[in-house]
Write a protein that binds this DNA or RNA. Sequence first.
RNA 1: GCCGGAGUGGCGGAAUCGGCAGACGCUCAGGACUUAAAAUCCUGUGGGAGCAUUCUCGUGCGGGUUCAAGUCCCGCCUCCGGCACCA
Length: 804
Amino acid sequence: MAKAYDFKAIEKKWQEIWDDVQCFKAETGSEKPKAYYLIEFPYPSGQGLHVGHPRPYTALDIVSRMKRMQGHNVLFPIGWDAFGLPTENYAIKTGIHPAIITKNNIEHFKQQLKSLGYSFDWSREVNTTDPGYYKWTQWIFLQLFKAGLAYKKEFPINFCTSCKVGLANEEVVNGVCERCGGEVIRKTKNQWMLKITEYAQRLLDDLDNVNFIERVKTQQSNWIGRSEGADVDFHLNGHNDALSVYTTRPDTMFGATYMVISPEHPFVDKYKDYIKNFEEVNAYRAATEKKSDFERTEMAKDKTGVKLEGLNAVNPANNKIIPIYISDYVLMSYGTGAIMAVPGHDERDWDFAKAFNLPIIEVVKGGDVAVGAYTDCEKGVLVNSGMLNGLSVDEAIAKMIAWLEEKNLGKKRVNFKLRDWVFSRQRYWGEPIPLVYCEKCGWVPIDESELPLLLPHTDNFIPTESGESPLANLKDWINTTCPKCGGAAERETDTMPQWAGSSWYFIRYIDPDNDEAMASDEAMNYWMPVDWYNGGMEHTTLHLLYSRFWHKFLYDKGYVNTSEPYAKRTSHGMILGENNEKMSKSRGNVINPDEIVLEYGADTLRTYEMFIGDFEKAAPWSMNGVKGVKRFLDRVYRMQEFVAGGDEYSQDMMTAMHKAIQKVTYDYENLKANTAIATLMSLVNDFYNKNQINKAEIKTFLMLLNPSAPHITEEIWKNLGFKGYLHNAPWPKYDEAKLIDDVIQIPVQINGKLRGVIDADKDATQEEIKQIIIENKNISAFLEGKTVVKEIYVPGKIYTIVVK
RNA sequence: GCCGGAGUGGCGGAAUCGGCAGACGCUCAGGACUUAAAAUCCUGUGGGAGCAUUCUCGUGCGGGUUCAAGUCCCGCCUCCGGCACCA
């Protein structure tokens, strides 16, 4: 009688052994084929590990462990994305310095991750708050700055009134702060911006060259939001000046009956002396300014606006004089901040025209513009449009653009929804921006030899009331000399956003201690690109796009050797509470992974998280499901009690074993560990039914289960006296010829209905099978008195007879 | 509104190329062991009919293709995710 399954002792023991023998270290330059698997490094929050974390980690740990057994040199690294708001907010609340909080949180996370037995190469651990790390984050920023891709701009930004910090558009979700849920208002700030828009086309095009799951590609391409159209000049009547608009429908220009410009448009001030109702216009402008983007876009679908009395434009298509309005439905941040309004064929313009009683002209036939805008580009035919009459929409667009370009009135243009990346944070806990401002020289980068520019220590890390960074209070630190002219200069007090450190961490993993470069060429050539990156859908439009942008920039400058950082991207579903709702403290449905490890063990937690369901979909937690997996591992452990000798699989298990190897191998590699585990559970049921498992069978079984439940399998491996460590045993192989039983079951259908299942030799001919069917009275009864019309035999699968 | 994804037992889910729908697990019911309970083991578990060999219906809804449809085609419905006054 073997001893009971003492998972606590077993797991502790094997984690120590793995640490001692350093078996998961990746070797740069190894002869073995390389495999770089990446999970999103965690933000070490005060809450500790969530049961959501182990789902993707375990999935790629399984692949890593299997690939090592298959002879690959696997890099499976881990690190900490440790700068950022939650830590800083907690520091402000408690008065504890963020550096200390970060250190403690990392320690806690590390201990938790270690308890789960992941095969991380801990010697390559990175930490974005480590000066040795952020030296290179700053260095990359300097390269961007030197390349003219970083610029400072007065910009109305989203400002969280609770965090007192500027947010990127991506961080505002449904009008509130993504992190704290606080109210977001518009505030003009002088911000550092990164020109990601210069890479928009390439970020879109190169999606064709990478193996990303479809929904990631679509979301990225939606976010980039490419459109084709034209910039068109509308001359101001009586002025030697033109209002430039962007339109995707130049074909409808003859239907443009008025123009609308954004309240922030510079023409409002430029022509204020000509605008007779400037007071009214200004009042509208002031009212708009007070609104948040949320109020402007989500709340107010009703059209408002003011006519600019005394200022008119000329429609270049027909030379008609048309009025100009300001309205908040036109956004300064898209296109040119001005539009030509075609109420007949644009719903927003139609609504506005109705509200202000403006003329609506039909220029594309097919609908009824009295009832609503007609926007079908497929079927419409141009009317009331001079030279365009009779053309389809596509033909008219081409002809109009050609005409505009010829007359020098406009130009074809591609436009993107993607906007430049707001890179400044008025916060303490981030990488200092390594620039100084000199009255004489302007913004000057500090010398690269000065990097890292250390984040100065201060106990006053509370944001200032004006919304400046706490660094603004540190006069000694701010005051410096200009690297260019030697005169007095001041340091930038904004810090970088959390997205900075995570935009390149996968590069640092390949050579984490290099002080001369982000990583050596040798490491770069050996490891890049990342073969497989798994992460959450919530990072599809932010982190993934930003890091692809940085990587492309570094590639252009020759600092990295691939134009895309990640060859493959997959995504995991969320783990929900038992009540099918998102896990949260307030809902009281949070499961703590530590408690599961304590009560059931790490192997149970890992295996359960894989067994919970389809990896890509959200799945509710089930404590009974956890118990079911624990029961399975108990049964595995007890199999030791009936192990028999045998160097070969026993005859009755031959097919099942080979099939299991095939299926489990395929499943692990394709994020289908749930069915791999189901297969292994079936095997265990078979062994229990026989009350026996032989040495050859349990050897293979342990190897197959090892990636998912590494501790228990190593332990049994050793108990049974098998050689060496299981984690570097060679992955089992299956024999194609042994995937089919000698005797197979063939279902027999008559007129599409299943009438029986017969046993036949696996190589039996159709005639032989037919004979067996005729001899089977239950089945042949259905053939009596009927004429056989058709017979189909799909070898090994099904036998179908059609009768009349 | 636009773009993706998905609808299968009481539940999580499986069915990899059009070939036995419901693997595996949970739940539940019955039984064994036990003084008893827990644990463990065994049996059953989509609906309906029947003592039963069995028959019949069944993968969101309505059609279609096929010897054969969860899977392919056409038309809908619902849910989830992303984007959205983007000109």
